[in-house]
Structure formats: C-alpha cells, structure tokens
C-alpha cells in the first residue's frame, strides 16, 4: 500500500494537478479570447501587476484593512499552507531519495508549528462561516468540504509525524489525503491558486486602464 500511494498514485495525483491546471488556464484563455474580447481591449501589464501585488500583500488593499481579523487569519492560513509542504524535511527526504533533489528545509519544530497554524486557522474559518450572517448565507456544504480537503493533509501529517497510535495508518492516510487535495484543485474552487492571477489581472486592467481607478 505504501508503495502504491508513494509510487503510481503520487504520479497520477501530480499529473492530474499539473495537467489539469494547464488545460484549465489555457482553455479559459482561449474561451475568453473567443467570447470576452472586451477583456483584452484594455489589458495593461502595469495595472494587472499592481492589482495582483497589492492583494498579495497583507493589508495591501482597503478591503483587507476593513476586516483586519479575517485578513490576519486568512494570510496566516495561506502562507503556512504554501510554505510547509514545500520546505518540509520529510517531503524533501522523499524527493532526495526518489529524484536526488532537495530544497532548503524548515527545522522540524518550525514546520510542526506552521502545521498547527493551518489547522487552527481552518477551524477559525469554519467557525466564521457559522458565526457571521453574511458569510453563512452564501455558505453550503461544499464550502466545508473544501476546507476539509485542505485541512486533511495537515491533520493527518501531524498525527503521522507525532507517531500517534498507528503510524503506518496515519502515514498512508496522510499521503492519500494530500493526493486527494492535489487532484481536487483543478476541478474545484481551489483552482483559485492560479485563476486568482487571471481574474485580478482582468479587474485591475478593467478599472485601471479603462478608468484610472485603483482596485485595492
């Protein structure tokens, strides 16, 4: 089982993730060129980049400043979510073993804390969906499902790392849940990882190049 999930299954998961996203981004680009020509009328690299960068910086936009607590939570969530798996020692050991490459790695005590941050912020995001009326009204089971898909690799990775009861079970569960997340990305809202840059470039140009208005 361990052989399967770290071998063929891992190839399948990464394959679907990269290929799926490439197909998605390219097909959206061509669909836009065919049907939404208006998007390209006022396209501007300068306004696009400003609009993207402002929204990647914590508190870089007025909207974020108006909801400071949520902004802190969501940035903590996203930053730890992206950094931890890439610079995790255990992941890089696997990379080293398989392909002989490895990146700079985080000390294990640090990655452990970042993992806890992700888990705690996900709990907060879920509670927020219940507590605030304006979030609750647009929330459905699907939103919780996506939070669960995102949180699962962190929860199971944490349990495996701490050798919580049955190590083998948690490890395999962890790898599977990581693969489920990767596979889910191109087919769900999680595709925002890439589409974020496209939609922000559009609104940045639409408001900026066309009207000189800032979108942050």
């Amino acid at each position: 089982m361990y052989q399967f999930v770290t071998g063929p299954m891992a190839w399948i998961a990464f394959g679907i993730f990269f290929l799926g996203m490439a197909v998605k981004v390219v097909s959206l680009f061509y669909l836009t060129r065919e049907k939404d020509k208006v998007v390209f009328n006022h396209f501007s690299w300068q306004w696009s980049l400003k609009s993207i960068i402002r929204w990647l910086i914590p508190f870089g936009s007025r909207s974020m400043r108006e909801k400071p607590l949520f902004t802190i939570i969501t940035f903590s969530f996203h930053i730890c979510l992206l950094i931890t798996p890439i610079f995790l020692l255990s992941h890089n050991i696997i990379l080293e073993e398989r392909w002989g490459i490895s990146l700079w790695t985080l000390p294990e005590s640090v990655s452990d804390i970042l993992t806890i941050v992700v888990i705690v912020t996900v709990v907060f995001l879920a509670l927020r969906r219940i507590a605030l009326a304006d979030v609750r009204i647009v929330t459905s089971a699907y939103d919780y499902l996506l939070l669960a898909i995102t949180a699962m690799p962190f929860i199971t990775g944490f349990l495996a790392y701490h050798q919580f009861s049955n190590y083998k079970f948690w490890l395999i569960f962890h790898i599977l849940s990581g693969e489920i997340m990767l596979i889910a990305i191109p087919f769900t809202r999680l595709s925002h990882i890439f589409l974020f840059f496209m939609t922000r470039a559009h609104i940045g140009s639409e408001m900026g190049q066309r009207r000189g208005a800032a979108t942050w």
Partner: peptide, 16 residues
C-alpha cells in the same frame, strides 16, 4: 465566456 466561468467557480463565499 472565460469571465463568467472563472467568477462563478472561484467565488470563495468569503464576504469581503
């Protein structure tokens, strides 16, 4: 088109 497809898919229901 590309816009509606992307917008409807990625709205995070975040209430910003």
């Amino acid at each position: 088109g590309g816009r509606f497809k992307a917008w409807l898919e990625i709205c995070a229901h975040c209430a910003y």
